[in-house]
């Protein structure tokens, strides 16, 4: 037990600082990916709800394709494909050399796009749950589209979508582990490096287990708080 704490502690031969930084990286890459996913999810939901056949089709293709391919492959496709596409674009714009995305950006984009597909359904569900009467009432009092979106649709949809959004966040946190294949030193990568170089896989993997559990638990509480906040004006039974 004492040796375990030396191993993951903050002493000269401990991996503590590394793991702390890795946890910070996991959190930040997850947060960026989650924000990206919210953007893609909103776009996707808008496309599906727009009533336009083309946009609806595009939205369907997006969610079907992304949900049908293993997330690890999506990360790899962005990692290798992203560089090739960007270099080609840069060449067309007269730039020289190679262009690409680093692990952090690949992770943000890949996990963002994957979670965006789930987010699309969550947000769409939130919108559909708004009673039609409220929208009609807003229209009747003469609200414009933007004002209605800001005052009525967004807050109401968010209220209904909040539990789903919380689930997507948990999913993003876990999926961020796949970004380790790009070399980004987040929790999974650091744990794996430690396991390999010390020949103590169990000690490191169980540490990783606890780190992820800590993150999902703490952020779970935060989301439950946020859920309560969106419901603050709701009548209680």
């Amino acid at each position: 037990m004492a040796t375990y704490f030396t191993l993951i502690g903050f002493g000269p031969n401990g991996w503590g600082w590394q793991l702390a930084y890795a946890t910070f990286l996991t959190l930040s890459v997850s947060a960026c990916a989650f924000a990206t996913g919210l953007g893609f999810g909103t776009l996707g939901a808008w496309a599906k709800l727009s009533g336009s056949a083309v946009a609806g089709r595009a939205g369907d293709v997006y969610t079907t394709v992304v949900r049908g391919i293993p997330d690890l492959l999506v990360v790899y496709l962005f990692y290798f494909g992203g560089s090739q596409v960007m270099t080609a674009v840069a060449r067309m714009l007269g730039q020289q050399g190679f262009w690409g995305l680093n692990g952090f950006m690949v992770g943000t984009l890949a996990v963002g796009i994957v979670s965006g597909a789930y987010q699309t359904e969550v947000i769409r569900g939130g919108y559909l749950a708004i009673p039609r009467g409220e929208i009609e009432a807003a229209r009747a009092v003469g609200m414009g589209r933007l004002l209605m979106l800001r005052r009525i649709i967004a807050p109401r949809a968010l209220r209904y979508a909040m539990p789903g959004i919380g689930n997507v966040w948990q999913q993003v946190l876990k999926e961020s582990a796949l970004i380790s294949v790009t070399g980004l030193a987040e929790i999974m990568r650091q744990i794996h490096v430690g396991a390999g170089s010390t020949r103590l896989p169990f000690d490191f993997y169980i540490t990783g287990f606890m780190l992820y559990l800590m993150l999902t638990t703490v952020s779970g509480f935060a989301f439950r708080g946020a859920e309560g906040w969106t419901l603050r004006s709701e009548r209680r039974a």
């Binding site: 948990q170 876990k174 999926e175 582990a177 796949l178 380790s180 999974m188 744990i191 794996h192 396991a195 103590l200 896989p201 169990f202 000690d203 993997y205 169980i206 990783g208 287990f209 992820y212 559990l213 999902t216 638990t217």
Partner: peptide
């Protein structure tokens, strides 16, 4: 709670390499 709160990748590593220690 534990199984849903951790990445599957880590679960596979723990079962394969971790337990074999």
């Amino acid at each position: 709670f534990v199984l849903r709160g951790t990445p599957l990748l880590l679960q596979i590593f723990l079962i394969y390499y971790g337990i074999g220690q």
